Simulated scan of single mutants.
Amino acid sequence: MKHDVGLKIFGERVVLVPYRREHVAKYHDWMGDAEILHLTGSERLTLQEEFEMQKTWEEDADKCTFIILNRDLYEKSADEVHSMVGDTNLFLNSNDDNHDETVGEIEIMIADKKFRRKGLASEALKLMMDYARQNLGKRKFLAKIKQDNESSIKLFERLGYKFVSKSDVFEEITLLYE
């Protein structure tokens, strides 16, 4: 999804910035981690494929992707790549049976392990949800999470998401925020 060039969404501890070309190499390094690949349900791409994927995500009107920066690191260095800790995504086309246009499918990843369990994911999710409400007309959010990703499940439940379904085929659960 195209965003204004200078778009930055500031929270207390994180800053969300649109996923751009300069972020790809570090993102690609993260996606070389077997645990991250499993928890995100992703496949390992080559660096060139990652650059191509970033370009399609940037241009696709149905996907909204932000890189999560650690605000302290960013304010000290003004270097987005150095400050990257994860990403958050929103798929704008509803995948539920009702095809409710107010629903967005949301994801979060804190890839840098030293920044996990510090409240950054919770803050980034809240910022993304606020952005989606104010700018994209989304009112409800779905999260599809690997069944064994207990910390993510607990995070979404703390934010008010409720269990909707379980898929043994995809080994994931779906939670809904209304």
Rank of each mutant, 00 (worst) to 15 (best):
residue 70 N to E: 08
residue 113 K to Y: 03
residue 138 K to P: 09
residue 142 L to P: 08
residue 92 L to N: 01
residue 104 G to C: 00
residue 169 V to K: 15
residue 124 A to N: 03
residue 124 A to G: 08
residue 111 A to V: 11
residue 98 N to V: 05
residue 141 F to P: 00
residue 72 D to V: 14
residue 83 S to I: 03
residue 70 N to V: 05
residue 138 K to Q: 08
residue 105 E to N: 07
residue 139 R to Q: 11
residue 141 F to M: 06
residue 77 S to H: 12
residue 164 V to A: 11
residue 86 G to F: 02
residue 139 R to N: 12
residue 127 L to I: 02
residue 70 N to T: 04
residue 159 L to P: 01
residue 153 I to W: 04
residue 91 F to L: 15
residue 169 V to T: 12
residue 53 M to D: 14
residue 76 K to R: 13
residue 132 A to E: 10
residue 136 L to I: 03
residue 83 S to D: 03
residue 165 S to Y: 02
residue 172 E to R: 15
residue 78 A to L: 13
residue 119 G to Q: 04
residue 114 K to W: 14
residue 164 V to L: 13
residue 123 E to V: 05
residue 149 N to C: 03
residue 100 D to V: 00
residue 57 W to F: 12
residue 146 K to V: 05
residue 51 F to M: 12
residue 150 E to A: 13
residue 91 F to W: 13
residue 61 A to I: 12
residue 163 F to I: 06
residue 95 N to H: 11
residue 101 E to Y: 13
residue 52 E to D: 14
residue 58 E to M: 13
residue 76 K to V: 09
residue 55 K to P: 05
residue 55 K to A: 13
residue 126 K to M: 12
residue 140 K to I: 05
residue 83 S to G: 08
residue 88 T to N: 03
residue 133 R to Q: 15
residue 157 E to T: 09
residue 99 H to V: 14
residue 58 E to W: 10
residue 154 K to P: 12
residue 167 S to M: 07
residue 163 F to D: 07
residue 117 R to I: 07
residue 107 E to G: 03
residue 109 M to R: 03
residue 122 S to L: 01
residue 140 K to L: 10
residue 95 N to K: 15
residue 166 K to V: 13
residue 137 G to N: 10
residue 132 A to D: 10
residue 49 E to Y: 01
residue 108 I to L: 02
residue 169 V to C: 11
residue 80 E to C: 02
residue 147 Q to M: 15
residue 65 T to M: 13
residue 92 L to I: 01
residue 120 L to F: 07
residue 63 K to C: 15
residue 114 K to N: 15
residue 156 F to R: 04
residue 73 L to E: 14
residue 51 F to W: 09
residue 82 H to F: 15
residue 69 L to V: 02
residue 167 S to C: 06
residue 163 F to S: 07
residue 90 L to S: 03
residue 168 D to Y: 10
residue 153 I to R: 06
residue 105 E to F: 00
residue 95 N to P: 09
residue 87 D to G: 07
residue 102 T to V: 08
residue 93 N to H: 10
residue 164 V to C: 11
residue 105 E to L: 04
residue 150 E to L: 11
residue 135 N to A: 10
